[in-house]
Amino acid sequence: MSAVLTVITGVLCIGGAIFVLLSAIAMLRSRDGLSRINVLSGATGMGLPWIATGVYIEHVQTHGFDVVTLLKLLVAIAGFVIMSSVASNALGRAAYRSGAPLDPATEPNELA
């Protein structure tokens, strides 16, 4: 049982880190600021929640289960998803309004 849980923890933690890494590579290769804000949601929407879940499983294994910790995990996951998407909305709007250079291939642009 313990070995299975450790494997699940490993998959969640390393998988989550790989989502963050994919976001970073996409950020490195994409051509304008808006695209970089765009690809960030892969890291915050999947990467960090997976790592938090892996940490929770390991925590249950060493310290035992209790409801408060589960609640903290749910708050953390909901926080990562909701807060990061609201923040990205604000950041994307600000980036567009501040006249950040757009990829010239942006076509169609219905907000112009």
């Binding site: 989502f19 976001s23 994409s30 695209s35 690809v39 999947m46 169609p108 907000l111």
Partner: peptide
Amino acid sequence: EVIRGALRIGADVVTPGLRMSPAIVA
């Protein structure tokens, strides 16, 4: 959908060549 989108972007950026062509739609 989040996993699918992340893997789609990941598959694009780790392979040579970039298929991204951004657009802003209403």
